[in-house]
């Protein structure tokens, strides 16, 4: 990884963090009509995976999907405006947080149903293979989805057909309010790859370099016809499941401990130690990301809602 990439990863993480904190403010003030599931603390996963994807590679995401969209190249304005249901959003304000799509850059949906994005990414990978391309599909999902039948069926078929897909399980320790240890038969979700004869790795999802390295290996397999990989990135959901969730089900001390292993702080320290970055460079990058997020929020709030007579545009006609 060269220095430019190291800084780019930091910028992506900062952009995601600042956009999410801006959405928290918009939510409190009634500008977000739907529930808001924020990605704070998990930024290293979206950044580390998507930095190596091409614009023609595709991803599917989840209800906690704003970060994946930004990392794949969606302008912050389009994301925030869509979450606020405005006409200037990526889906004209008709999708919202759990239907963020931008096919021209490979964002094939932040799908709100748990586990439902996994077979979609698998199907996209099948299409890519049948079209004889070297494109790759990535499915982001959580620890809860790894206990869903769609996960197991998709891994099986992707293995049998050697599909160019990367399954990225973001284990943030909670499926809504259910702790992963209460609901999951294995200690490492990455171990489940063995059942489907594919490589599986478990990495620290708050260390962007670990995520990056695991993705690099998975991408090289996928692009050369060797089939899928399962990456489990272990992280922690530092906010509630939704904005307003007091997360009273956490173990005492858990949140404080997780906050001390912040992905942005980890990478910042590493880059300073390596001489890639100075403290003041970091402050400048953080201020730039915050200014962009504030500008995007103002843009969203100043944008109109879609007009009633446009209701049938961009929507499915059955």
């Amino acid at each position: 990884m060269d220095n430019a990439m190291k800084v780019r990863l930091l910028e992506t993480m900062l952009n995601i963090r600042k956009a999410e904190l801006q959405l928290a403010i918009l939510y409190k003030n009634g500008k977000v009509p739907c529930a808001a599931h924020l990605y704070e603390g998990q930024e290293a996963i979206a950044a580390g995976v998507c930095a190596q994807l091409r614009v023609d590679d595709c991803l599917t995401s989840t209800h906690r999907g704003h970060g994946h969209c930004i990392a794949k190249g969606m302008p912050m304005k389009e994301m925030i405006a869509e979450v606020c249901a405005r006409k200037t959003g990526c889906c004209g304000g008709k999708g919202g947080t759990m239907h963020l799509f931008k096919p021209d850059i490979g964002v094939m949906g932040t799908i709100g149903i748990v586990g439902a994005g996994i077979p979609v990414a698998t199907g996209i990978a099948l299409a890519m293979k049948m079209q004889k391309t070297d494109r790759v599909a990535v499915s982001f999902f959580g620890d809860g989805a790894a206990n869903n039948g769609a996960f197991h069926e998709s891994l099986n078929l992707a293995s049998v057909w050697k599909l160019p897909v990367i399954f990225v399980c973001e284990n943030n320790r909670y499926a809504t309010s259910v702790a992963v240890w209460r609901s999951t038969s294995v200690e490492k979700i990455g171990d489940r790859a063995a059942s489907y004869s594919i490589p599986g790795v478990t990495v620290d999802g708050n260390c962007v370099d670990e995520v990056y390295a695991a993705t690099e290996a998975a991408l090289s397999r996928a692009r050369t016809g060797q089939g899928p990989t399962l990456i489990e990135a272990v992280t922690y959901r530092v906010r509630g499941h939704y904005e307003g969730d007091d997360a009273a089900y956490r173990k005492q001390g858990e949140l404080t401990e997780a906050r001390e292993h912040d992905p942005i702080e980890y990478w910042k320290q590493k880059l300073i130690e390596d001489g890639v970055l100075r403290e003041e460079d970091f402050a400048a990058l953080a201020a730039k990301a915050e200014a962009e997020a504030e500008e995007a929020a103002a843009f969203a709030v100043d944008s109109p809602f879609p007009a009633p007579e446009e209701a049938l545009i961009l929507t499915a006609q059955i």
């Binding site: 939510y27 939704y242 307003g244």
Partner: peptide, 11 residues
Amino acid sequence: IVMPRLGQTME
């Protein structure tokens, strides 16, 4: 600063 809405059912 307004009374924030924190949760879909909060009025």
